[in-house]
Design a protein around this nucleic acid. Structure first.
Lengths: 353, 353
DNA sequence: ACATCCTCCTTAATCAATTAAGAGCTTAAT
DNA sequence: ATTAAGCTCTTAATTGATTAAGGAGGATGT
């Protein structure tokens, strides 16, 4: 059972390959009779239709948008922020009738040429650390690229959030409620798998730009409020999971004096902190205030958080890529919003020890 | 700025195209000196590397797995069950170093040739109604296909759940607790946008096979317990959202006599039913028991549900497709499990009116 | 001195289509 | 009758690579 191509059908009918091609893609170029006969024979021979790869090559378009993510794909799909973004991106792809191709990057010792070999027309790069090798591979492809959240590469379009301001808004919220002993739990600063207390130096040298800037926003708000940042307990976790959040929560709540508020840079982490508070029998928000980030899992838990326009960001990224506008180095900063729910309140008058 | 191809570089250096190709893909075939010179010139000319589409054509492999979903992509990404499945599928794709290409289907009056033109090596088809035109387009491609949840097409590999048994398990749980006035809320039976009470005939003629079978499981369990199915209030909603679940909850809880338990075919719907119960000031599980399905959003809410191995199903599907085993018509039925949490209890002794 | 073996590179076939331009032939208009 | 216009189909160039087989030249073995 040899491969069936246009040529096979052409030979069988004694017509030219071009004629068979027209039968499939330009019905107006052929008489109805011949066209019918061609389609009949195609069916008979089990022809699978014009080969998409050959078509792509000839037409110079792949019909797909490539998406690159720094983490493993399992991790990406477990992150509500990323999934929300995908939703928007997928909507844009759908509207344009192109596929959304999620590309795995090599992790660990695994080699992979996915970026080099991906049959796509453009790339969306999300949360890659500054010098990640995949970034160079993407640029080498000379296709339209939009960077999301990080890294910001001058001269290339960017979609993101005003991280320092958003973080400062979250911090200011608890500071204005009167909290002075505040702990911070963050994920996504480095990719070395470290979980534990983070020194000032480690904080500032964070590999991931967006989270580094977000942290900077916290610090600025604290300093503006006259709170010494070096006294702020700062716990870093390696994975954005509820369990990691719980661990951070226990660490922070074990400090003496105990914080009356905890800031986290994801909602998932914040939920874990709530778990820790619950373990210790602490009333939230009576004895402890907790703030999340990105409003991705926050509603049910009554979490105060910073809402980000995930879907809109995804859609905008898609449109930028699909409209060809990605040639211009636009920089779209999407608005954020503080959503105050029931996880934050003024600190207790006389803190329980 | 004309296109730079292997040939451009070859011409510039006065070598053959093949030599340049070897410089990129088979370093051992070339002297180091020439290879270096080739790469240098390539860089100089701004060559983007061997064209992936041409490569794909020549090598006969696309390096991507196509995924098809009956709903809009925004909807798919909003469904925790689907996202869980994606997680597993993506993991398998990642391990194999291939991309995961999510293909939009035409919706409404939109035309689209995405299935016909998708540059992929295989297809994963999830939850397509029996006669959906995309299914024929997929088969026409003559590539490996795995069907997930539905439709089951004899002779093709299938990955899914024992729907009738799983549903019967959920139903039996409340029946064994002593409930006799039970309501049912389901989504995903038809795709005509209908929301409201569903007649027996409408139930049985459901377009989507998996949900049709799931419903059959409920009915069987009721009949085995001696409960007349025709007296069971059955509310159907068009979309798998919390708001829709709430609407269904209000409808069902407005029945006289009021149900003491409600079965839903998704956790999202169940959360909505809990919202409705809360609106009415009903105690769960004291006055109302609620059961979800798929354990996708259930833990925090304490929802009793049927756990499905979403991730494992996705991974198995991926492996089937990527190992070439999809040629054999395997039928993988994954186990389910009743998870009893705090949303179910025996019915109240003397029901409040 | 001759055969043999490498190393390095070229030739040419192949992958499977699309499409502008042109060639016959028929039909219609003048 | 003649010219122009329409249909329908073919020719041939093009898209950008990969790779088996072969050739030229130098090094090695006997």
């Amino acid at each position: 059972m040899a491969r069936v191509t246009l040529q096979t059908i052409a030979d069988r009918l004694g017509v030219s390959r071009a004629t068979v091609s027209y039968a499939f893609s330009r019905p107006d170029q052929l008489s109805d009779g011949l066209r019918r006969r061609i389609l009949e024979v195609a069916d008979e021979l089990g022809y699978a239709g014009p080969n998409p790869t050959a078509r792509s090559l000839r037409l110079g378009r792949a019909g797909a948008l490539g998406m690159i993510f720094s983490e493993t794909l399992a991790y990406a799909f477990a992150d509500p922020y990323a999934v929300g973004f995908f939703q928007g991106l997928a909507t844009a792809a759908e509207d344009a009738g192109v596929g959304l191709c999620i590309l795995p990057l090599p992790h660990g010792d695994r080699r992979s040429e996915t970026v080099r070999d991906a049959v796509v027309d453009s790339f969306c790069v999300m949360s890659l650390p500054d010098g990640h090798p995949a970034l160079a591979e993407v640029f080498a492809r000379k296709l339209p690229v939009v960077m999301v959240d990080e890294p910001y590469v001058p001269g290339h379009p960017f979609v993101g959030t005003d991280e320092p301001t958003a973080a400062a808004t979250a911090a200011r919220h608890v500071l204005e409620l009167g909290h002075r002993r505040v702990g911070v739990a963050m994920v996504g600063l480095h990719d070395d798998g470290y979980t534990g207390w983070a020194s000032q130096e480690r904080q500032e040298s964070a590999l991931f730009e967006a989270m580094r800037r977000r942290r900077g926003g916290y610090q600025r708000a604290f300093e503006e409020a006259g709170v010494d940042w070096s006294g702020v307990p700062f716990y870093e976790v390696a994975r954005n999971t509820r369990a990691a959040g719980k661990k951070a929560g226990h660490a922070l709540l074990g400090c003496d004096p105990r914080p009356t508020a905890i800031l986290t840079n994801t909602d998932v982490l914040a939920l874990g902190v709530l778990d820790a508070a619950s373990d210790l029998g602490l009333d939230v928000p009576g004895e402890l205030s907790v703030v999340g980030f990105s409003d991705s899992a926050a509603e049910d838990a009554g979490l105060t958080t910073i809402r980000q326009a995930k879907r809109e960001m995804g859609e905008a990224t898609g449109r930028l890529l699909l409209s060809g506008a990605a040639a211009k180095p636009e920089r779209l900063i999407f608005p954020h919003e503080l959503i105050v729910r029931t996880s934050t309140a003024p600190p207790p008058r006389s803190p329980r020890r």
